[in-house]
Design a protein around this nucleic acid. Structure first.
Lengths: 204, 204
DNA sequence: CTTTCAAAATACAGCTTGTCTTTCACAAGA
DNA sequence: TCTTGTGAAAGACAAGCTGTATTTTGAAAG
């Protein structure tokens, strides 16, 4: 029973691959049948993997969705949102962030819909990934409101706090989806409406 | 087996009473443990009623939630929203509708949250009450946008369609809840932010 | 005193999550 | 080549859920 050290290159790679296959299966199921409950069993079968393997890797249903939530930000292009933040002009920061956010949401709309709705129903069900994303956005909007104020771009009758509230409202997935799915507007139309509405509400 | 006609006063009243008891149980459970899955069995036990009775009266879980959705509008004061619509001044119509809507959502916030989130996840799960409410709101906002245009209150750079889109966005439960729960603002603050944001976005 | 009906009680099939234990297959190391 | 570690599969299991019967109870209506 002496410990024999393993470096396991190939095996670790294979493990990573099955992990990806399971995540991909969630995307596939969501795209194939949006608005339909997803079971761990269904995911396992779609990934051609045993159900117990899903529990082995992700621990639970919540753990799986937690990883999906982490993954969908990367796949959807969250990087472009952070790029927008780097713009020296706060107004361009606002426009870029709203546009990048809309595109990110649209890229995997069904996935975001399921994640947000299940998180709203039962915060435990996503193990906190949604909460973290939300807090990050709240912090980002506080920062943006502050920058707008510093650059003198805020309407005189709008406080920094109010601006942060409105920006938080406009950058949420629900706001995006109300226009995208609820009204059937294309992404660029949604982004345009969001930008003009936000600017009129908080900018001078 | 000859049919004997029944007028059944007392019995019909008793039936209506158990029906209310079941609906009340849903409210109680939602208020006691928001963000926790609700089972038909739990509702039945809370109402001190057999589970089969719930199915007898409401047909299914979806049917139950459908009735709750119908009920919560009445209890929350949807009447005040329709009153606002009657105002001759379209701008006051807008303000009144937004305020009344916010108060209605706030009165039974947890109930609305569950209803909207489950409806978003699975449209079948509420048997259409949410969809109908949504269509009604969409129609109402189209009407309001039209009235604003006719009274010359719309910004010159805003089309009637765009105004309807923005108003639809601002009057949704998700928009309300983003500020009410997401930001922890009191109802009147939410209403104020909604009104000013909507007015700045679409009114001259 | 009989009829009718709301409600309860009960059993059932089928689905779900989550936790086991056992077995298999294969790459890493000696 | 032979052993060992380990990712994954396979399968059994408990517990909870929905939905659909079927039968029984109790009380109001006639």
């Amino acid at each position: 029973m002496a410990n024999r050290k393993y470096e396991q290159r190939l095996r670790a790679e294979a493990a990573q691959e099955t992990r990806r296959r399971i995540l991909d299966a969630v995307y596939d199921l969501l795209r194939a049948a949006p608005g339909q409950p997803i079971s761990v069993d269904g995911v396992a079968r779609a990934a051609r993997v045993a159900r117990s393997t899903v529990y082995l890797i992700f621990g639970s249903r919540a753990g799986l969705f937690d990883e999906v939530a982490r993954d969908v930000l990367i796949r959807g292009g969250f990087a472009r949102v952070t790029e927008a933040v780097a713009h020296p002009d706060a107004r361009e920061h606002l426009r870029g962030a709203l546009r990048a956010g809309a595109e990110m949401y649209a890229a995997y709309r069904d996935v975001h819909r399921v994640l947000f709705s299940t998180a709203a129903l039962d915060p435990e069900a996503t193990a906190g990934a949604m909460r973290r994303a939300d807090e990050g956005r709240a912090g980002g909007m506080a920062y943006l409101a502050q920058r707008l104020a510093e650059q003198g771009l805020l309407r005189p009758d709008v406080t920094v706090d109010d601006a942060a509230h409105v920006l938080y409202l406009m950058t949420g997935f629900d706001a995006f989806d109300a226009l995208y799915t609820g009204r059937g507007l294309p992404v660029d139309e949604v982004a345009r409406l969001m930008v003009t509405t936000a600017e009129r509400a908080v900018c001078r």
